[in-house]
Design a protein around this nucleic acid. Structure first.
Lengths: 186, 186
DNA sequence: CTAGTCACTCGCACACTGTACGACAGACTC
DNA sequence: GAGTCTGTCGTACAGTGTGCGAGTGACTAG
């Protein structure tokens, strides 16, 4: 009998590039060689394809970078309030974002000029709104509070590195969270 | 009579490029066209010189960018504690740094990868240590506190813009300063 | 006055960049 | 068989940072 299910997969004809594959390769190349190290030709070489083939899947290099940023946002944890309570949740979020930046050190250089409208950034924002909303912030302050934490973490990635820096990081983060907390209790 | 004082200036022979001149022109070019817009050739054109002439005054484009960053640090106000007291001083510092970033929007993109060891950055750090030291922070916490404020301000430059954003900026800054203040009073 | 040195400028060249364009190839639909 | 759709790729162009070496004028030593 012949049906979609019995028929064997047509076998991908030629194996074909995919956007996800390109984005993934771009991230590993960026991690290995930094922002300077990312060129369309080098990226294509890693994918065993011609440089201009990439342009079928991605309109410009800049678009690729936007995709790559969004992908990294996907690595960031931000728990639901029931699981952790507000403050531990915010701390976990902050450390998780920091970890992502430390792992992808090129991110801060690149995050400033673009809007962050990708799906994973959106989902992160949504989860943040839930957490900070549950904490007791209202209306605009929900976004302000989450934005403050993100701003601090991203800014703190300058010259980030070792233990010593982690102490400094925690100091600032705790202070900020204390200040936010105080706003809740007023 | 002939002396160094009576002799008229030899007249600069040929008018010559200077590092300061190059740095200045680079900043105006960056302000006008962004990081992408800065190329050695364009910069040289603005100075009516050959592109490679710049390389006598500056070793690489990267070095030039380091100089440029330091120059911007020079625009940042940070008052002495007697003049303002700690908290107003910190607020002025934060807003002044923010203003510099808003004026030179390319700065965050560029500030992450380099150490900030220039004289103006150093002087800023020194003045900061005075202010935060006078506030009552001790030892490492002096640097941590100032670093936290800087981190927040720099991070908050993402997608910065209008009134609305200023409200968000002030919210986070006040929270952070509240948290730091609380640490002083414990 | 001549010869040499120093401070500085600049044209050329090289390897490399992003990407527009158009030719091509295979699979699928009539 | 013809045509379309998805996808790949070589070539080419304008632009990049910068090494190299030649050039130029002002100053100094003899």
């Amino acid at each position: 009998m012949d049906s979609i299910w019995t028929r064997e997969r047509p076998a991908p004809a030629r194996e074909t590039l995919s956007r996800a594959q390109i984005v993934h390769a771009a991230i590993t190349l960026l991690d290995a060689e930094g922002l300077q190290g990312l060129s369309m030709r080098k990226l294509a070489a890693r994918l065993d394809s011609g440089a201009t083939s990439l342009y079928w899947h991605v309109q410009t290099k800049d678009d690729l970078i936007e995709l790559v940023i969004d992908e990294v946002y996907g690595e960031v944890d931000l728990p639901e309030p029931e699981l952790a309570g507000w403050r531990p949740g915010a701390i976990l979020f902050a450390h998780s974002l920091r970890a992502a930046i430390m792992h992808h050190t090129w991110l801060p250089e690149v995050v400033y000029t673009r809007p962050s409208l990708g799906p994973k950034a959106m989902s992160l924002g949504e989860r943040g709104r839930v957490l900070f909303g549950a904490a007791g912030f209202a209306d605009r302050e929900i976004d302000y509070a989450m934005g403050a934490v993100m701003s601090y973490v991203i800014g703190a990635a300058r010259r980030a590195g070792d233990m010593m820096q982690n102490e400094a990081f925690a100091f600032g983060l705790d202070s900020l969270l204390d200040g936010l907390d105080a706003r809740l209790k007023k």
